[in-house]
Simulated scan of single mutants.
Amino acid sequence: MKKSSFHFRTVSTCFLLSHIAGQTRLDYNLQGMMILGSWAIGNMVRGGIGASRTTGETRAFHQMNLYRKSVKSLSCRLSLLACDQRVAWK
């Protein structure tokens, strides 16, 4: 009887610790995506301003940077959406 009680407490403690570690990882991912998304939006604004004020190859560079950051921003939004859905399921 004592052996099974010890086993149950050990398993429940491990489950609780894994849940806490999982929530911490989820929080880190959420913060990272928010930072990456903010960085992408800032670069999109900067690229848009740069593209509107320049011509030639420099303008093409700023446009390419704007397109690349819009894809990165979309990736962040999708990750945040998936993260929100995982939190809602718990």
Rank of each mutant, 00 (worst) to 15 (best):
K3F: 13
S4D: 03
S5L: 09
F6E: 14
F6I: 11
F6A: 13
F6R: 12
F6W: 07
H7T: 10
F8K: 15
R9N: 11
T10V: 00
S12W: 08
T13L: 07
F15M: 14
L16V: 09
S18T: 06
I20L: 15
A21Q: 09
A21G: 06
G22Q: 01
Q23A: 15
T24C: 15
R25F: 15
L26W: 10
L26T: 08
D27Q: 10
L30F: 11
L30T: 11
L30P: 00
Q31F: 14
G32A: 02
G32V: 00
M33Q: 11
M34I: 01
I35D: 11
L36S: 08
S38K: 11
S38Y: 00
W39Y: 12
N43Y: 00
N43C: 00
N43D: 15
V45W: 04
R46H: 07
G47L: 05
G47F: 03
G48N: 05
G48P: 01
G50H: 03
G50A: 11
A51H: 00
A51I: 01
T58D: 14
R59M: 13
A60R: 05
F61K: 14
H62K: 11
Q63V: 10
N65H: 10
Y67N: 02
R68C: 05
S70V: 01
V71G: 01
V71H: 08
V71D: 14
K72W: 13
C76E: 07
L78G: 01
S79V: 03
L80A: 03
L81I: 00
A82L: 07
C83D: 08
D84Q: 03
D84S: 14
R86Y: 11
V87S: 12
A88W: 13
